[in-house]
Each structure stands twice: as C-alpha cells, then as structure tokens.
Design a protein around this nucleic acid. Sequence first.
DNA 1: GTGAAAGCGCTAACAC
DNA 2: GTGTTAGCGCTTTCAC
Lengths: 335, 335
Amino acid sequence: MARRTADGSPTMATVAAEAGVSRATVSRAFSQPHRLRPETVERIREIAGRLGYAVNPAAKALSTGRSGTLALMVPDVANPFFPPMIKAVERRADQAGYAVFLGHTDESPAREDLLLNRFAQQVDGFVIASSRLTEAAIRAHAERSPAVLVNRDVAGIPRVLIDTTRGVTQAVEHLAALGHRRIAYLPGPSRSWSNSERRRTVKRAGVRAGLSVTMLPGRRSSYESGRQAVPAILATGVTAVIAFDDLLAHGVLTGLAERGVVVPLDFSVVGCDDVLAAQTHPSLTTVSSRAAEAGAAAVELLANRLGDGGTAADDRLLLDTSLVVRASTAAAPVC
Amino acid sequence: MARRTADGSPTMATVAAEAGVSRATVSRAFSQPHRLRPETVERIREIAGRLGYAVNPAAKALSTGRSGTLALMVPDVANPFFPPMIKAVERRADQAGYAVFLGHTDESPAREDLLLNRFAQQVDGFVIASSRLTEAAIRAHAERSPAVLVNRDVAGIPRVLIDTTRGVTQAVEHLAALGHRRIAYLPGPSRSWSNSERRRTVKRAGVRAGLSVTMLPGRRSSYESGRQAVPAILATGVTAVIAFDDLLAHGVLTGLAERGVVVPLDFSVVGCDDVLAAQTHPSLTTVSSRAAEAGAAAVELLANRLGDGGTAADDRLLLDTSLVVRASTAAAPVC
DNA sequence: GTGAAAGCGCTAACAC
DNA sequence: GTGTTAGCGCTTTCAC
C-alpha cells in the first residue's frame, strides 16, 4: 500500500511502489529520463499516467530552489500596447516550461516596487515592461532576482528596446516634406523611457529639418488625455502634432473634430505604436511597434540566463521601427 | 551561526537563532501571531525585518498544501472586454493574499483544457472567464479544483453572470421605437454563453415588438470580422443591426462607411459591452457591461470558498445591464 | 506561551 | 542503471 497525499492524489511513492522501483527512479523518469533504461521510463510513465500522478510543483520548487515561474510586470493591462506583449510572453514562457504571474502596477512606481518585492520570493525571474521605477530601484531589484527589461535602458541589465528613433524621425521628415513648419510633441508618462526617447527624437529631427518644435506638457496615456490636450495644442499655433502613442493621438483626433478642425486638411496628427490599426477616423498615421516580438525576446533572454546559469553578456536587443502613413497627415494648410 | 539558505537569504532558523527562540515560534509570529505574546511577535518581526527574512512560499506551500495562488483563464487578453476584468481580478486577489497566474486560451477549447490541467497542480483555485469548454469538461475540472465561472452558467458551479437580457431588450425596443421593422443580430463566438444569451434575447424581444429578426452567421469577435460582415448585413435588407459586442459593431461602422452607408441616417448600429466608450465615429449606442465588477466578484466567491472550506451554496450572481444610447442609432430611413 | 519533532513530496549526491 | 539517504524551509500536533 503506497502512501497517497492527504487529498487522495498519488505521490511518487505511490508510483514507485506500483512500479516496484525506488522513488528516485520515478523522479528520474520525469526529470532526467536519459539516465534511465528506456523501458523503465516508459513503464513508470505509463503507471503514473494510469494513476493520475503529477509532480507536485511546491515540493519540486522547495527541493530545487526553482519554481518554474516568471512574473511579467506591466504598467497598465488596459493599454492596448500591452496585451499583444502579454500574449507573446505567456506563449513563449509556456514553451520554455514556465508559468507566468501577471503584475499590474497601475503606473505607480510604489506599487511596482511592492509587487517586485512580493514576487521576488516566488518566481525564478522577471520581465519588467516599461518600468516606472528609477534606475537605482531597478538595479536593486535586478541584483536580487534575474530580470530582463523591456523598453527601459539600464546598462548591465539585459533589455530589449523598441527603438522608435527611426520611425519617429521618419514621421518628422514626413511632416516637413508635407510643408509643415511648426509641429508639437504631445508627451506620455514622464517616467517612461519610450517617452523620453520619442521626445528627444522629435526635437532633434525637428531641428535638423528646420522645424519649430513645441513640447507640450506631459500626460497619462489615454484617449481622454488626448482629447483634453486639444485646446493646448491649438493654442501653440502648430499645424501638426506627434503624440506619444496612438491612444493619445486618437483622443486628439476626436478633440479636433469636436472643434471643427478637419484632419488632415486643417491639421495633421501622428501617433505611435500602431495599436489601433486603421480603426480611427481618419485612419492614423503612426509608427510601427513590435510589442509582441519584444515580449517574446525578453522571455528568450531570461530563459537563457536562467538556464545557462547566467551569461554575463550585457544583452541589449534593439527592435527597429518605421513610419506607417495613413490618412491623418497631409500637406500643411496654406494660411 | 544560524543556517542560511544556499543563495544567502535567511531562513526561519536564522531568525530563530538571532531571537533566541525556536523555529516554531518564528513560524507562529507570522502565521498565528495571536497565539504568541505580543512582545515576542514584535521582537521576532523586528529581527526578521532587519535580516531581510521572508517566508519561502514553496516551503509553505509544500507544508500546508496551499500555494496562495489563483489562475485566471481568459480567451483573449487583447479583447478590450478582458483587461478591466484582469485588472480587477488581480487587485482583488492581491487584497485576499493571492497572486494570480494568467492563462490565455486563445479562444481554443483544447488549449483551455491543457492550461487548466497544467495549472491544477499549482494553484488553489480558478477564475474561468468566458469558457469555451463544453459543460461536461467544465464540470470535470471544477470537480478537481475549486473554480468559479464568469459568463458561463453551469448549475452547481459558482458563477457570476453579466446578464445582458435587460440591456439587449432595451436595445431592441429602442430600435422598434425608432421605427425599425427589420433588424439583424450579428453573433460572436459560437461557444460563448454571452452570445447565446444575446441571440436569444434579440429574437425574443424582436418577436414581442413585432419585428422581423434575421440571424446572421457567427463570427470571431474582432474589428475585422465586423467589417467583413457588412455585405452580408446589407444583403438582408434590414435597417439596423445589433452586434454581439462593440468590437464587431465598430467594424460594421467602418464597413458601412466604406460603402457610403451613412450611420445613423441610413442605418442603425448597436454594440454591446461598452468597451469603446465614445471612441467610435459616430459614437456607438451599446449595452453597458460590468467586466471589472464581475472579476472582483468572482475572486470574492472563490476566496470565500477557499477560506471557509467550501460553502455548498450554489452561488449564482447576476449583474444587470442597460442600454447606453449614443449616436449610432436613429429613426429608420423612410424608403 | 513556547519548544521538540515529525513530516509535506521531491531532488541530488553518493553508493552499489 | 538504480537504490539509499539526506535534506529543501516551513507547519503543526503534542508536550511541557
């Protein structure tokens, strides 16, 4: 009579007894089958299957010190930029044998910090997307648990960056070519690395193209924020705006329409991330994004690092982008 | 010299030694502080904090048989209906002391089944949202692990249902009042309970209002699906359509515009779930949804069930809805 | 109120 | 190739 666990489910001992082998052999049949005679493995697996046996993850984790889990931290699940990334991370992690915890930080550095601490005990590693933490805080966490960053550039910590330099530069040049002389940038979350990058790129490319570039005050990334930013945008006297992302751009489109400003005849709008496809009216000129790829790559990096016992390589993967021209941009109005 | 774990982090023994008590006492200081002298608790906690001690979740799980984790299963993270629910589940679970795994089934019953099996070992319970599984399959899983369903009505399994009967009925009556005599329903995923409900409601309310109701072929819930459904919709000769959800309705809006059909003058469109707010053009008349509340309630039910050792009550929570009239519906065209 | 000791189910040397 | 034997770090009777 082999012992079973309290809730009745079989344990290794149950299988071992049934198969007439030791528990170690059963263990090996699952974790290192190559070290066993093939027929033994097969027999044990057959019995295990018949008995409905499954490895107890907690026991395995306690024994090995590895949980087989990852945590993915994102600022806002509801922002359409993230779901494709979440999907990709989950899928890739699954393939690598990891289950993933989702940590929703709600754009709050404090909550991000809290969750990072809480999860540190129960996961093998982190994928931290669009962190709102300071570099020092990120460093501190990365020192304690393996982590890879997405869209955050901290030297020494593996990271995958969606590099919008090219796409945004193309956007500025596109507007310049259309005859716009005065443009504005509508920023997103102030602690966002992507935002700093885009802001800098717009500035630099604008200067190079001989444009006057106005920097508007920062905003939370949302449709409503974009809509509310419209008066400020119009007050600057520009003829085109590049928004931090599509959500903001979409709101701007609506706000403009509400004031009778016709896009793209009277005004041009450019978004970023291409998360709305052609779903806006008019369809949005934007910069392509690669959120899903970024997520998959991040897991890849993390899995390698966890597997090989940590390569010391300073991984820094860049994903390039480009402008997608649709219907929200056109020649500057003649006035 | 109290032992520390391999990676250097302190263990209960470390704290116990430092405090001059037994490991059992340290354990109690965290899990049942009321059974200890207050000053003891405080001293132990102080030392633990100073040493950077944290309970090892795997050891605790192995010992207690409970992992302190939940899994949330959703068909599609990228569908805007789910993120608010995910957020709410995560938040509520966090408050109840649970971390949540996210399971993305990709609308595939097979994958849902697979993930349910895989997670069964490592979580204390499931929140299964909009399951695409058969009733039998759901029953089988619920028998092995505590589960609560969202938007799936299986007797005997705790469930929270967003009841769109009222909202959809109001939508039909709204259209009837506007003079529409022939309407259509554009269905969503065939295995969706919500879809069956809405379909049934449209049919019933339509008959009662003396309308002719056409049932179109089912579709995956997406913007593109909606757009592609337009020819079929127009072919039916109806003057209004009620779509399974806002995503489909949004696509229909675009498809209609592409064919020069003006909404709401020539045609009326109603969505469901209110996930796009007023972000469409024209803004969408829709049925309110309560995804976040549903998610929170589901966790609540699950946590109670896990806590009290399982109330046998056949929980069935209904969340009511109502019509939100915006600009995509108007009087039927006179022809 | 606190301690001693026996596990929880699995893995990983180390033998044979 | 397979078995023996210690633990992994925590909880939990049962004593005192």
